[in-house]
Amino acid sequence: MHHNIPADDIPRTEVGNIFAITGNTGPAAFWIIYHLYSNPSALESCRDEVSNIIQEDGSIALPWHRDLCSHDSRRPYARRQGGNVDEFYHEHFIRSTHQKRPNPVAFRGFGGGTGLCPGRHFASTEILAFAALMITRFDVRPIGGKWNRPGTDKAALSASVAPPNVDFEVEITPKSIYEWRISCMGSDKAMEIAAEDIVSEK
């Protein structure tokens, strides 16, 4: 109200916020889960990494920002440049002393410049936290036994992350009998999601 938005326009603004909040986070979470479970080596690697935050009593202490994926927040996303651009390569953005670091501009899932998404850190945190909990707590198998990648050609042009054309049916089973407890820890460092985040910390 203090921004002088007419009362009749407030509900319209909130509807727009709903699209901004859910329009890309849902599809992004789907594709991370799909690619991790359909790629045994990626699943094992990420499970090993997440195992470092599981306590002896079965509780999970989730670092709330960059430490959730200690190498790089863009780790779960697909390769964005090179000859195999259509392949999922979960270690593409990991920093290594043995190879040149990929150009950070290669990933623009949250836009850039004046169009850079202001909610990118919140969105990345909730997506990564969801993925970490899923791969820790559950096994996921496709109904029919085969990971057939669904198409995305019917997605709206406005979608930064294209949702699948059809529902993808899976069987989800618990991995253990733990009574899980989740706690979230703070951090004074934001994830390096976009090139602008890296530049701003120099």
Rank of each mutant, 00 (worst) to 15 (best):
Pro118Val: 11
Gly109Leu: 01
Thr97Gly: 08
Val105Gly: 02
Arg120Val: 08
Pro118Tyr: 09
Phe122His: 08
Phe110Lys: 00
Ile94Phe: 07
Gly115Phe: 05
Gly112Thr: 02
Gly109Val: 00
Thr125Ser: 15
Gly112Cys: 01
Ser124His: 13
Arg101Pro: 06
Arg108Gln: 11
Gly111Leu: 05
Gln99Cys: 07
Phe107Glu: 01
Gly115Tyr: 00
Gly119Asn: 06
Gly113Leu: 03
Ile94His: 10
Gly112Arg: 05
Gly115Ile: 01
Arg101His: 07
Gly115Ser: 06
His98Met: 11
His92Val: 11
Glu126Lys: 15
Ser96Glu: 03
Thr114Arg: 14
Val105Cys: 09
Gly109Ser: 03
Phe93Ala: 14
Pro102Leu: 08
Phe107Arg: 01
Thr97Glu: 12
His121Gly: 12
Ser124Phe: 02
Arg108Val: 02
Phe93His: 14
Arg120Gln: 14
Gly111Asn: 05
Ile127Trp: 00
Thr97Phe: 15
Ser124Asn: 13
Arg95Met: 06
Ile94Asn: 09
Glu126Asn: 15
Arg108Tyr: 07
Pro104Asp: 05
Thr97His: 11
Gly119Thr: 04
His92Asp: 05
Gly111Ile: 02
Pro118Met: 04
Cys117His: 05
Gly115Val: 02
Ala123Asn: 07
Pro118Thr: 05
Cys117Glu: 04
Ile127Thr: 09
Arg120Ile: 13
His98Ala: 10
Cys117Lys: 04
Arg120Glu: 07
Val105Glu: 06
Asn103Pro: 10
Val105Lys: 14
Val105Gln: 07
Ile94Arg: 12
Gly113Trp: 01
His98Glu: 08
Pro104Glu: 12
Gly119Val: 09
Arg120Asn: 12
His121Trp: 10
Phe93Thr: 06
Pro102Lys: 10
Ala106Tyr: 06
Thr125Glu: 08
Lys100Trp: 13
Gly115Trp: 01
His92Pro: 00
Ile127Leu: 15
Leu116Gly: 00
Leu116Trp: 00
His92Ser: 10
Lys100Thr: 07
Pro104Arg: 06
Ser96Arg: 13
Arg101Ser: 10
